[in-house]
Design a protein around this nucleic acid. Structure first.
Length: 667
DNA sequence: GACTAACGTTTTTTT
DNA sequence: AACGTTAGTC
């Protein structure tokens, strides 16, 4: 059997993880220790032990991780079994749960999920209304505070800042009035339903008897409480993670969930995966020597299965221009000398701002590259707009999407009119859409605005009717609606380049296509909106397909690996970031560097600059204090000048041979 | 209601 | 330096 074969190929610790199916289990999986393989084998083993696949739940943090795990499992078990398992994110699990039971909390079951940009929209409105005077508060800041509170289990009305608490309450009321929930509410409400309603809780505990949580170091305390509700005695729960790779503390992740796991589930079996299959001895030794400096961790020593390897280089650079040029030149040289693919190279940096010079240097040399982690597909303006139209076709009474596209494209319903409509709707306790349909409201407006509104209402109504009554395909209706109002030319008018224009067109088209597929698979328009709100997939996974060297932030690099890694900007103030020093989270910065180092399979180069152009100003830099923490055993310290000189003498040498050859040829 | 000019800001990012 | 936001003007 295929599973047996897989079991044979596992090491001792991995086998132990796979064999122990009962009771709480914590797998501490160091970087590159075959975590995913172990977890998928463990789940396959559950099937061998005749556990019904429908009772198996695996929870991940991102959609990408979920689909990857689903794929890996599918490769090991029968198609039928794979389909019956639940592999999803915390948030989509909660959506499922709430679509069934949110009515117990007084919401309607057709609640909608508020996307981030819409959260910002709501908060901005509230700031205008509540702010009164010129409070210099950003909507994003308030939302971050609200989110932090929810994830810590604090009631938002108890926020320490009075003004924030007031805004938070108004924000929740606004969502409630729209029968909408935000991302955090999904977890808050799901946990609440499970906690307060034992029938629901028992139902889910019987439904999922085996729960696995991936990337456990990224879970926050709300997710922990949700997990505790979800898993009852005898606690067949398995969490997998690595506290040394916990780099999302600023987003609420609680390393304590790993460090104090025993507090949450009784007598867990703790298994350490420390055999690393990814990196050379040199890389691992360097990584181990760094992470040793953190206190309060589940100690792990990564052991190399690949011995030797070239030393890790630390290169001092005069400035960030040289840094970028040096790396680009090396990539170019290595590619032809050793016969590498562009995909073998990755350049890692702390902040997105550091990528620009690197991009330019690569572009200069015609080196193809892919930037990972830039703008999210679903946060693009045109995508949010089109999704707003889709949302209106389901339920025009939803104010958030309505206000979003009321004048996009421009149709003569400006801000002034929008405010009048909002005020009127609030007064009458109806939706903005109802106000627009109300002749008592429209007659108070000028003739021009009134007719603009009339046209708009007719446009949306007729499109909605085509779907509801004529049963036309929603994707077709949406597409024709956009064409009818010249949306594409409008959104393209502000584009600076042809490629941008093209991108926007393609983005809309690809959204229409995925809607079409979704409907053709027999699913509803509403569930498409759910998925879209919960998705953040970059450019539809064509990043995977894109070829070239990888430019990526340290955060986004977690979980990836590359043969040759350059880690730039190891300077005090950048790594550790200056803000982390003031906030006292230097440990997390150390973990961030640790994550970066352990991405390298064969070759690792760390660079720092003596000067750097920061905000258009040339500033001096100190090498990162982390550099002194690295053990010297497998390190080579060098500098830009030194390398340039060595290359020079290499050139001289080849010139010498060339002239010798000429002499011989002449003879 | 659209366009332009001054202004302020600039860690990491998922759902 | 470069970007988005906002205030002010037509």
């Amino acid at each position: 059997m295929a599973n047996d074969f897989a079991f044979e190929s596992l090491n001792h610790a991995q086998r132990e993880a796979v064999a122990n199916l009962d009771g709480p289990v914590m797998i501490l999986a160091g970087a590159g220790t075959g975590k995913t393989r172990t977890v998928t084998c463990r789940i396959a083993h559950m099937l061998e032990r005749k556990i019904p696949p429908s009772e198996i739940l695996a929870v991940t943090f991102t959609n990408k991780a979920a689909s990857e795990m689903r794929e890996r499992i599918s490769g090991m078990v029968s198609k039928h079994a794979a389909e019956q398992m639940t592999v999803c994110t915390f948030h989509s699990l909660c959506v499922r749960l709430l679509r069934g039971g949110i009515d117990k909390l007084g919401y309607k079951k057709n609640f909608s999920i508020t996307a981030y940009s819409d959260q910002v929209g709501i908060m901005k409105q509230l700031l205008v209304r509540k702010g009164g005077t010129d409070e210099k508060v950003k909507a994003e800041t308030v939302l971050t505070e609200i989110s932090r509170a929810k994830n810590k289990g604090i009631d938002v009305q108890d926020l320490s800042d009075d003004f924030f608490a007031q805004l938070a309450v108004a924000y929740q009321n606004e969502l409630r009035a729209q029968n909408a929930v935000d991302f955090d509410d999904l977890l808050v409400l799901a946990e609440q339903v499970l906690r307060e309603h034992s029938d629901v809780r028992d139902h889910f505990r019987k439904l999922y008897t085996r729960v696995t949580v991936d990337e456990f170091q990224d879970t926050n305390s709300l997710q922990m409480r949700l997990l505790q509700q979800l898993v009852g005695p005898p606690y067949h729960v398995c969490v997998v993670g690595d506290d040394d790779q916990s780099i999302y503390g600023w987003r609420g992740a609680e390393v304590a969930n790993i460090l104090e796991f025993e507090r949450f589930f009784p007598k867990p079996k703790i298994i350490r995966l420390e055999e690393n299959y990814r990196s050379t001895q040199a890389v691992l030794h360097t990584a181990n020597s760094l992470i040793k400096h953190n206190i309060g961790r589940r100690e792990k020593i990564l052991r190399a299965t690949r011995t030797g390897g070239e030393n890790v280089r630390i290169v001092a650079m005069p400035g960030d221009d040289e840094e970028a040029d040096f790396i680009a030149d090396e990539i170019l040289g290595e590619k032809s000398a050793v016969g590498r693919e562009w995909e073998d190279f990755a350049v890692l940096f702390r902040t997105n701002g550091q990528s620009r010079k690197l991009e330019l240097a690569l572009r200069d040399r015609k080196i193809p590259y892919r930037m990972i982690g830039a703008q999210s597909f679903y946060d693009r303006r045109e995508i949010r707009d089109v999704l707003a139209y889709a949302a209106l076709l389901v339920y025009p009474q939803n104010d958030v999407p309505l206000l979003r596209i009321l004048n996009a494209p421009n149709r003569g319903i400006g801000q002034a009119t929008a405010i009048l409509a909002t005020d009127y709707s609030r007064e009458k306790n109806r939706s903005v859409w109802d106000a627009l349909c109300d002749p008592f409201f429209t007659t108070t407006l000028g003739a021009k605005s009134a007719s603009a509104i009339e046209n708009f209402v007719a446009l949306i109504s007729s499109a909605k009717n085509r779907i509801d009554l004529s049963k036309d395909h929603p994707a077709t209706v949406l597409s024709e609606l956009l064409t009818e109002m010249d949306y594409l030319p409008w959104i393209q008018r502000g584009c600076k380049s042809d490629s941008e224009r093209q991108q926007r067109g393609e983005a809309i088209h690809s959204l229409e296509e995925s809607l079409r597929q979704h409907i053709d698979r027999g699913k509803k328009l509403q569930s498409f909106l759910d998925d879209s709100a919960l998705a953040s997939e970059r450019e539809d996974d064509d990043l995977e397909k894109k070829k070239g060297a990888t430019l990526i932030t340290l955060h986004a690099s977690k979980g990836l690996e590359f043969p040759i890694v350059y880690l730039v900007g190891l300077e005090e103030g950048f790594l550790p970031h200056s803000r982390s020093v003031t906030e006292g989270t230097k440990d997390e910065e150390r973990r961030l560097l640790y994550v970066g180092i352990t991405r390298a399979q064969e070759s690792l180069t760390l660079t720092y600059c003596t000067t750097r152009v920061k905000w258009g100003q040339k500033t001096g830099c100190q090498p990162s204090s982390f550099i002194c923490e690295l053990d010297d055993k497998h390190l080579t310290h060098t500098s830009f000048d030194e390398i340039q000189n060595t290359e020079m003498s290499d050139d001289d040498l080849s010139n010498f041979f060339a002239s010798m050859n000429n002499i011989f040829a002449e003879e």
